[in-house]
Amino acid sequence: MRYAQGGGLRRPEQAARERIRMLAAKGFERGEKSMVIAKDLRVSRRSVERRRRSWRENGVDGLRFSRPAKARKVG
């Protein structure tokens, strides 16, 4: 099943997920193992591994939510 842009999450939910990703980034910087980070943040190890790969390729910016592909028109 595919979700709408942003995973179908509203802004507060996106912010909460991004906060978790930033906490994971701190764990990456400390050299913690994926299983430890996953347990601490209560997420799956696979999710942590996916985020670690993104972090390696793009740094912290790779973990941030990007804006929707189609921005709404204002006005």
Rank of each mutant, 00 (worst) to 15 (best):
E13K: 14
R50W: 11
R67N: 10
L63P: 01
G8E: 06
L63E: 07
V43A: 02
I37V: 14
R56L: 05
R64T: 01
E18F: 06
R50F: 10
G7L: 10
R42L: 11
F65N: 12
S47Y: 14
G7M: 07
S47L: 14
M1V: 14
M1K: 10
D40P: 00
E13Q: 15
F28A: 00
A71K: 13
R51N: 06
S54L: 13
R67C: 03
G6F: 01
R46W: 08
M22I: 11
K26N: 09
E29M: 11
A71N: 07
P68Y: 01
R51P: 00
R11N: 12
S54F: 02
P12K: 09
K73G: 10
G31M: 12
K33V: 01
G62I: 00
V36C: 06
R67A: 09
R53N: 13
A15C: 07
M1E: 07
G75K: 12
F65W: 15
R53S: 10
A24W: 08
G27F: 01
I37S: 03
Y3D: 06
R50L: 13
R64Y: 02
G31L: 08
S44V: 03
D61I: 03
S34W: 09
V74Q: 12
E32S: 05
A15L: 10
G31N: 12
P68S: 12
E57H: 09
Q5D: 15
P68H: 04
G6R: 02
M35F: 12
G75T: 08
V36M: 09
R2C: 07
D61T: 05
S34N: 15
L63F: 05
M1H: 09
G7Y: 04
E49S: 02
K26D: 12
R50Q: 12
L9N: 03
D40Q: 13
V60G: 01
A15T: 10
R64C: 03
L9V: 04
R21W: 05
K73C: 03
K39P: 00
R42S: 15
S54T: 08
A69M: 08
E29R: 11
M35N: 10
Q5V: 04
G31A: 13
L9F: 08
K39A: 13
R45P: 00
A24S: 08
M22G: 03
K26R: 11
R52P: 00
F28E: 04
L23N: 10
A69N: 10
R46I: 03
K70A: 14
S54M: 12
V43F: 02
G59A: 08
F28N: 02
A24K: 09
G75M: 04
K26Y: 09
G6S: 05
R56E: 12
R72G: 06
A15Y: 06
K70Q: 13
G8M: 08
R21M: 04
R50V: 08
R11M: 09
A15I: 06
A15W: 10
L23I: 07
A15H: 11
A69K: 11
D61H: 09
G7E: 03
P68F: 01
I37L: 13
G75R: 13
K33T: 04
G8Y: 05
R67T: 07
F28D: 01
R42H: 09
V43G: 00
S66H: 13
